[in-house]
Write a protein that binds this DNA or RNA. Structure first.
Length: 327
DNA sequence: CGCCTTTGACCCGCGC
DNA sequence: GCGCGGGTCAAAGGCG
């Protein structure tokens, strides 16, 4: 996101009683006040002086309220901008998927046995801190599908993660929680393939296969099948945190890890993991939905990892040679 | 104690 | 029908 878009030099004036440009003014004011209070204690304060002090406090309060209002407006603008950007990206993705689906239909029509229901148009490129991830192009020889009857509506995506050749762990960190349920040595690859299920939500149908590339042992290939029926764990942490805060409270920019450490008491129904299902969010009042969206947007825009991941994903799209043709 | 990994057994689809 | 190979299950053990 454009760092110049938001002017952070707000000149927040949290220290009261120094409105003048004179550096000595706060000290003078302080001395005056101390003097005033002394007089009050001595029983010599006049009603006029009290009124003046009260007037100064009121002005200060008004000024802080104004600044608060400005900040709120800026935050709203930021969220709007983010929402617009998000919808634009979604629009572009939809356009690309439609054209890709049409291509798939055309190319698969004459195939005797198409490679699964694999929807390669949903290939994603994950970038997580500490890992080097690339988007992939899938060839039909690789990962031929053996069970086409199931999975007809499965969304399949694949990511390539750079790793060390000596690293035998088949682990791809993507933020989700996975439970390994099997490992198999396949015929076409000396490296074993690991099978994972998403264990973050018990009903989540997403599976993941991780195997080293046969051609390049430095490359881990992670194949994702299905769609998560829950939010991303880190996003969920934010929402859970938000759920514990009344709307008129000021939110502090807590990190997800901090949010997880807190023990929120959601004011709406959650499952045993304090998850908010998409249906529950949908059923919430519009104002609350908007509040959730705004808070999610603000938390995401505050997250440097999200910004870098978004930048990497976008730059990855631009650098991809096939990108221009497929959009 | 709960969660996760390991690993052998089993299931199922496909080709011959 | 049989064998092969990929995918899944589930018991056992490790770990925090």
């Amino acid at each position: 996101m454009d760092s110049e878009w938001v002017n952070t030099s707000l000149g927040l004036n949290v220290i009261p009683f120094h409105p003048a440009s004179d550096d000595q003014a706060p000290v003078k004011k302080q001395q005056e006040l101390e003097g005033d209070y002394a007089k009050v204690f001595e029983g010599h304060a006049s009603v006029k002086q009290e009124a003046a002090a009260s007037h100064v406090l009121t002005e200060e309060l008004n000024r802080i309220s104004l600044e608060n209002k400005k900040l709120t407006e800026m935050l709203t603008a930021l969220c709007e901008n983010y929402t617009n950007l998000q919808s634009h990206v979604k629009e572009l993705m939809t356009t690309k998927q439609q054209s890709s689906d049409q291509n798939d239909l055309a190319t698969n029509f004459n195939k005797k046995r198409k490679p699964d229901s694999e929807d390669y148009s949903n290939m994603i490129g994950l970038t997580s801190p500490g890992t080097n991830t690339e988007t992939s192009s899938i060839s039909d020889e690789e990962y031929p599908c053996k069970r086409p009857k199931e999975n007809m509506n499965l969304k399949i995506s694949r990511v390539h993660v750079r790793t060390e050749a000596s690293d035998t762990r088949l682990i791809v960190k993507d933020g989700y929680q996975w439970r390994k349920y099997g490992q198999k040595v396949t015929r076409d690859n000396p490296s074993p393939r690991a099978y994972y299920k998403c264990s973050f939500a018990p009903s989540c149908p997403v599976k993941k296969k991780v195997q080293k590339s046969a051609e390049n042992p430095c490359l881990l290939v992670a194949t994702y099948e299905g769609e998560h029926n829950h939010m991303h764990p880190e996003t969920r942490a934010e929402v859970t945190l938000i759920g514990s805060i009344s709307p008129n409270q000021q939110l502090s920019p807590l990190s997800p890890s901090m949010a997880k450490r807190t023990s929120p008491v959601p004011t709406f129904s959650c499952d045993k993991n304090n998850n908010l299902s998409p249906r529950e969010i949908e059923g919430a009042p519009p104002a609350f939905q908007q509040f959730l969206v705004q808070q999610m947007a603000s938390s995401l825009t505050k997250d440097p990892n999200f910004a870098s991941a978004l930048a990497a994903a976008i730059s990855g799209r631009f650098s991809d040679h096939s990108w221009m043709g497929n959009w």
